[in-house]
Design a protein around this nucleic acid. Structure first.
Length: 195
DNA sequence: TGTGCGATGCTCT
DNA sequence: GAGCATCGCACAC
């Protein structure tokens, strides 16, 4: 099985909205004893702590859960929503609680392994949601606090998306004015992007 | 292929 | 004890 060179720390040192776009087309890789799974990132959302009513860290709220967002960029922020695990990339400098949510992947390596983790699903249903992709990739809550520049869970160079689209984020009806911020980014025309 | 809705557990107040 | 950055199923077309 192939390994890949992780993107360096410097990649994460860019403004959150730019990082959210730069991540599109990058390859998310998870190496486990069962094998490698990987997929291209095709949809992201930015969450910008202090200003953003939709963010857990709104108004710089600092709790056990949001603590990692106050760290340096490139850290792994996982949390559970209902029964799912969701995966975020911490962005912005230390003490600035911002992050990018990874919403959808296009599977690359290890699709058979993904299918064993999500039995009975069609190929495009393996990773077309933030909770689903964590299941398919074997990402669990205990990845919280890790770093994307090291295996087993890391991000490497992928392809350059031809066209990126932006729009309002999904599933945050109570965020008032923040729900209309065009902070969702996706690869135009990719068949793994659902909505 | 698309929409609607109920189950569900963890975190914070 | 309330509120969710969701998913899967049922049902219509």
């Amino acid at each position: 099985m192939t390994s890949y060179p992780p993107l360096p720390q410097s990649f994460y040192q860019q403004p959150t909205l730019e990082l959210a776009q730069s991540l599109l087309g990058c390859l998310l890789v998870h190496e486990t004893s069962e094998g490698i799974t990987s997929g291209y990132i095709v949809e992201t959302e930015a969450y910008r702590g202090a200003l953003d009513r939709a963010a857990h860290s709104f108004n710089n709220r600092r709790t056990k859960r949001t603590e990692i967002m106050f760290h340096t960029p490139g850290h792994i922020y996982t949390y559970t929503m209902h029964r799912q695990v969701l995966l975020n990339v911490v962005s912005a400098d230390a003490e600035i609680p911002e992050a990018v949510l990874i919403r959808e992947l296009e599977p690359k390596d290890g699709m058979p392994l993904m299918e064993t983790r999500r039995p009975g699903r069609k190929p495009r249903e393996l990773t077309n949601g933030p909770g689903k992709l964590c299941q398919a990739m074997g990402i669990i809550q205990s990845h919280y606090g890790g770093h994307f520049i090291n295996p087993p869970l890391y991000i490497t160079e992928g392809y350059n998306p031809e066209q990126v689209e932006t729009g309002p984020r999904i599933g945050i009806p109570n965020a008032q004015e923040a729900k209309d911020f065009p902070w969702r980014f996706w690869v135009h025309g990719n068949r793994y992007v659902s909505r």
